[in-house]
Design a protein around this nucleic acid. Sequence first.
DNA 1: CTTTGATTATTATAGTACGAACAATTGAAT
DNA 2: ATTCAATTGTTCGTACTATAATAATCAAAG
Lengths: 141, 141
Amino acid sequence: MTESIESYALDDQVGYLLRLANQRHASIFQSHTLDGLTPTQFAALIRIADLGKCSQNRLGRLAAMDVATIKGVVDRLRQKGFAVVEPDPDDKRRTLISLSPEGEAMVARMKDVGQQITNETLKPLTAAEQRSLIRILRKIS
Amino acid sequence: MTESIESYALDDQVGYLLRLANQRHASIFQSHTLDGLTPTQFAALIRIADLGKCSQNRLGRLAAMDVATIKGVVDRLRQKGFAVVEPDPDDKRRTLISLSPEGEAMVARMKDVGQQITNETLKPLTAAEQRSLIRILRKIS
DNA sequence: CTTTGATTATTATAGTACGAACAATTGAAT
DNA sequence: ATTCAATTGTTCGTACTATAATAATCAAAG
């Protein structure tokens, strides 16, 4: 008996399950999204829409993205023509990010799609479970 | 009134919350892990321990990793000396993956740590919420 | 036996993510 | 006014993730 007693069930660990849930959501997102927008890019876009013009670092903080990550995301949003980048006249360290008209239109269109994506992701759950999941995820985030 | 009526709350969307929960878990994992093992590498290691010697693709499927992903993960596990790679004599397409003695030892040590990581990740929740989260995540994975 | 279709592994490309190091700039304290 | 600490943005290195394309091998059906 050198074997340990079935001590660790990978399939019951939060970390592993969170990874799987993320995979499923990303796959659903990709099948519904417009212009190849990724979940991360969409989150950043929504934040810019809510915040209005703001610095890149601030946007990153509010969208829960690393400074290095938000830079790449903003670059891609700019390349796609959704975000506008300009230097802050009042603080030469800062870069101000805002939405282009195309970005505004994209946000409007994607909000409906986003709701669909959420619904489809939550479809295997009862209404009570859906509320429960959101509430619990907010507690551990 | 051209504004849309506060239609989309990013902070209440599953996708966004799953990303945040993953971030938190990854951060906790990193602060407890041994030898810089990542959550993904640990999951693969556990699977190899459970399955015994098996092909790289099969390992990837059972650990929920893409063929391209599992290749990188196995490469790094081999570099760290935890996994052993050999050609399958019965099927020249296949590469067989197994644990080295160091890999076995690592799995034994990491199982305890893994439990700690899970506990700390779930700490903000009540016992009922913890069970609820696991159950619900299994349903949408 | 040969063609066909599936499986396996590898590679390339693109995106997300983080730590660490760096330079430029700012604001505040001395 | 100068020093000092904090902030901002950039870059590098490493890792994970998925898709698509490719090549080798295998198995099965004709």
